[in-house]
């Protein structure tokens, strides 16, 4: 509150605020875009435990550490190893690099979306949000953006760090054009994987109010889908198209294809790249459709 100097009033060090009053607001409001923006920022802070006690920071900090440790190790190897050949042998390509960070990505997918969606429904905060300029669509959009950005911390951050470090160390792409191309592929791959796991996490979180149940479900269905697909396709010789149902490997295989590499987790070419994009799109449509269906029929009392 502003202190207005008054002639004859006490000196500043003696001044006291004795009436803060209530002020009307005549300025321009930020509207729905502003509401989405603040929801995104607030949700990201919640997911990362910022502005909260230390115990809320433990899980996100640990997961982020797990995600960045491989990049730090490879950067160290690149700096210490003498020859280019040895570097090329030991340091993985960018698509291969995800093998070291995928656990962190799964963990974040399992923790972030449930903590942001389930809590609001369970505590009634959803009603508070929907009494603001947000509606169900813009609320879900804000939450989805927040989950996606937080996931990018562990999907896009580590390979970007590796790219920058290798570039500075002299082992990166040869030219500016190659560097931009590599950056673009890493970015596109991160968007593919980030949107995919954000959608899966949010869809599961839309089905229950309980964070623990949602987290456990996300962490269970990701490997379970891979195991089931492995049994069906590899052991029972069913159609390779069933691989599109494998949650962990579909986006990783797509990243290999984005980088033009053919030795991805499926190690086969039975699935043309367009079918992978179609599979990714189908998963996204199903997940988003389920989220919308869940929230559309959700009766928000107050």
């Amino acid at each position: 509150m502003t202190d207005i100097p008054v002639p004859g009033a006490p000196q500043p060090e003696e001044a006291q605020i004795y009436d803060r009053g209530y002020r009307t607001f005549e300025g321009e409001r930020t509207g729905v875009p502003g509401a989405i923006r603040t929801l995104v920022v607030h949700s990201m802070r919640t997911a990362l435990g910022l502005g909260r006690s230390a115990k809320h920071k433990v899980v996100p900090v640990l997961i982020i550490l797990i995600a960045y440790i491989p990049a730090i190790i490879f950067i160290g190897l690149a700096a210490l190893l003498p020859g280019e050949e040895l570097e090329e042998t030991l340091i993985p390509s960018f698509p291969e690099f995800y093998s070291g960070t995928i656990v962190a990505i799964y963990l974040f997918a399992g923790f972030v979306a449930p903590s942001l969606l389930c809590t609001d429904r369970r505590t009634g905060m959803l009603g508070v949000y929907l009494s603001s300029p947000l509606d169900r669509v813009t609320y879900l959009l804000g939450k989805a953006i927040a989950v996606f950005i937080v996931l990018l911390l562990v999907i896009f951050g580590p390979p970007l760090l590796l790219l920058i470090a290798l570039t500075l160390e002299g082992s990166g792409p040869d030219s500016l054009g190659a560097w931009i191309e590599t950056f673009g592929k890493i970015f596109l791959g991160s968007i593919v994987m980030g949107t995919f796991f954000a959608a899966i996490g949010l869809a599961v979180a839309a089905a229950t109010d309980r964070i623990v149940v949602a987290t456990a479900t996300v962490l269970a269905i990701i490997p379970a889908s891979a195991i089931a697909v492995g049994l069906l396709v590899d052991e029972n010789d069913l159609s390779p198209s069933l691989r599109l149902l494998s949650l962990p490997t579909l986006p990783r295989e797509l990243i290999f294809r984005i980088h033009g590499e053919s030795d991805g987790p499926w190690s086969i070419t039975a699935n043309p790249t367009w079918t992978l994009w179609a599979g990714w799109g189908a998963w996204m449509i199903v997940a988003i459709g389920f989220i919308w269906f869940s929230y559309r029929r959700l009766l928000v009392r107050r």
């Binding site: 409001r29 509207g31 603040t38 929801l39 603001s132 947000l134």
Partner: peptide
């Protein structure tokens, strides 16, 4: 909540 309602 104030920001949600359009406050800068």
């Amino acid at each position: 909540i104030a920001e949600l309602h359009g406050m800068p």
